[in-house]
């Protein structure tokens, strides 16, 4: 199949970028989207041009490195699929594909389709952990956890941190990510002691990073490669409210 690509090219963080058109000819429908870009890149290299830079690593949909917006949809048109697992058979011969980086102030573009997502790490550093040092853990079965509770925590924990939620949100909000991270721990009894501290500091870190706000459209959940539910955003909203109120009436 032959495709027309319009790809965002940007030299570095401080340069301005633009869409550049490429012809992608003889693309095998069995290719993954990133393999298609590999092929385009090899051709660019052969003709002495600089290849398109894009983040990728595991190529099996779990590391969360790959990130591209295809025709306005992060990770492309196939639901619950990262761009590395998106295959070209989902496109038609002759299609024009506009490929852009994830866009958000908190995710500055550093080259072509690559963005800096370290803001997510800052959020986790702010409180996305249970403070247990190595060696101080009790025997694992001393604390039984209801199966459905563990399953719910796992639903939240399956977040791969790719940032598609931010990219899809019209406000570049990181609420789904923060909610998934905090709800994973807050749902489990081990995470309860730090629950309030956690939501307060994670939301503060989120605000500081310059993400926008949730307008409850749930685009985030719709593009999420792991289909993480917006229910966790509801949970975060509730927990943050309680935590803020409690904080006012607790002496430190």
């Amino acid at each position: 199949m032959d495709l027309k690509l319009r790809v965002w090219r940007q030299k570095d963080r401080n340069s301005s970028g633009k869409l550049v058109e490429y012809d992608a000819r003889d693309i095998d429908p069995e290719m993954s989207f990133l393999e298609m870009l590999d092929v385009v890149n090899e051709r660019l290299i052969d003709s002495g041009d600089e290849p398109i830079a894009f983040d990728h690593d595991c190529r099996e949909g779990i590391c969360g490195a790959c990130s591209a917006t295809i025709n306005g949809i992060p990770h492309g048109p196939h639901r619950a699929t990262t761009v590395c697992q998106l295959h070209m058979r989902h496109f038609q011969d002759g299609d024009t594909l506009t490929i852009e980086p994830f866009r958000a102030r908190a995710f500055p573009v550093i080259r072509d389709l690559m963005v800096d997502r370290t803001a997510f790490d800052r959020i986790v550093e702010a409180g996305g952990y249970i403070s247990v040092g190595t060696g101080s853990a009790p025997e694992a079965n001393t604390l039984p956890i209801p199966k459905d509770q563990a399953e719910r925590a796992m639903d939240a924990a399956s977040c791969i941190g790719c940032g598609a939620c931010v990219a899809a949100c019209k406000n570049a909000s990181a609420m789904l990510f923060v909610a998934a991270k905090s709800s994973h721990l807050n749902t489990l009894p081990q995470g309860k002691p730090e629950k309030e501290r956690r939501v307060l500091s994670m939301v503060a870190a989120m605000d500081e990073a310059g993400f926008g706000n949730c307008t409850n459209q749930y685009e985030c959940s719709a593009v999420c490669p792991k289909s993480i539910s917006e229910d966790f955003i509801g949970q975060l909203n509730r927990e943050y409210f309680v935590a803020s109120i409690k904080q006012q009436f607790t002496t430190k």
Binding site: T69, G72, T98, A104, A106, A168, N171, G210, E219
Partner: peptide
């Protein structure tokens, strides 16, 4: 402010 550069092509799935 959170999205100073908007997408060249915009689309939504379910909003």
């Amino acid at each position: 402010r959170a999205r100073p550069d908007s997408y060249e092509v915009k689309d939504t799935i379910q909003a």
